[in-house]
Design a protein around this nucleic acid. Structure first.
Lengths: 210, 210
DNA sequence: GTCTATAACGTGATAGAC
DNA sequence: GTCTATCACGTTATAGAC
């Protein structure tokens, strides 16, 4: 929509370089602990350019925050609204998508939840997720399964909290887990890989146990 | 150990007032976003007094961080090392303790995990938790149960991640959950109360399903 | 567009009166 | 011990040359 030359992987334009650097640093340290100098250095450019392209630290942050939030919720939305998959398939896909995401970007959950404490639900509202998530194919399937007594009666929110908690929490608690258990980063990642199959199995067990 | 008059609830001494205020503000905003002036205001005292009693923002923070971490891990330690309780009782107690804690102090998990990203495992090590948590009555019970084939074979770390994830994650994601689902704070707390009995039930189901 | 230099501001910490 | 006033410093943001 801007230019017709999408940067061909290298020799990326300055604006993108800054945005990528900002994403990395903001995700790792949060808004308050991040200095614009950190971002400039990470991007390999001059500090003044940051303000030239994005006006202010806050504006740049808002951009990163929105994109991160969008990317994070987008997965839920896509999977939950796919009306060609079963409930079990949706669970499996969700788990795999988030483990993929978090193995690569383990900082995202704490970044998001930490920043959302300050800017309360203004951003959540801005995402407009409330309307589209509360009327998904998933919820209809879930309700049907309960009505037909195929699964245990259960508030869908409890279900989602369990799913997200089992997948996301381990990544957030990674430093503390490694600290008290002594596992290495590599061993930790192996554990997370195991959870691709374990979590759906556990969720299934919970749902079908009367 | 200091004085023999433990403050009788009101007319608390200045040092304690500052520490309590620091705990509130640090927990809510984290180290970087907290200004010493915020703490002074919350405590109802002058900014200079903060430095008079605690020398620096960092020193005061280290104190709060240590106490918070200690209080948080202490519960796990106590419950896991109680050799008069069954595995099932330990689970139930853990869940109830943490739900109690988090209903009152919902900021603690994000505070801890967020700050632990920067000061990596130096603090975890300082707590000396590694040694005492890796040789608990709980782990022996867990291993015995597996050997006697009473429960499914399962890495205890997976078990602990599930337990903590199901209990703690919902509190961390509270703003996002309320944002996308539309539940009120009061309804959210009711859901958390329900989880006192639901989580142990789910954990039991997972453990005993072959 | 990109840089250097600097202005403008906020924050942690202290000096010194009481 | 407690306060007011102020210093010292780091950080965001901009002015202006190239």
């Amino acid at each position: 929509m801007d230019q017709d030359k999408k940067p061909p992987k290298m020799d990326i334009n300055t604006e993108t370089k800054i945005k990528n650097a900002a994403r990395v640093v903001f995700h790792k340290k949060g808004f308050a602990a991040t200095r614009t100098r950190d971002i400039a250095e990470e991007a390999g450019i001059n500090l003044a350019l940051l303000n030239y392209y994005f006006r202010s630290k806050q504006k740049l942050f808002d951009l990163i925050m929105f994109e991160t939030m969008h990317g994070f919720l987008q997965s839920i939305f896509e999977v939950f609204n796919n009306d060609t998959t079963t409930l079990e398939q949706k669970i499996e896909t969700m788990v795999n998508r988030y483990i993929d995401l978090l193995l690569t970007n383990p900082d995202i959950p704490i970044f998001l939840l930490n920043e959302l404490r300050t800017h309360p639900e203004e951003l959540v509202a801005k995402m407009g997720m409330k309307d589209i998530l509360m009327d998904t194919h998933f919820l209809k399937q879930f309700q049907s399964a309960i009505n037909e007594e195929k699964i245990t009666t259960l508030n869908p929110l409890h279900f989602i909290m369990n799913l997200m908690g089992m997948v996301i929490f381990p990544f957030m608690a990674c430093p503390i887990i490694k600290g008290v258990s002594g596992v290495t980063q590599s061993e930790f990642e192996t554990l997370m890989q195991e959870r691709r199959v374990l979590v759906p199995k556990w969720i299934h067990t919970i749902l079908h146990n009367k």
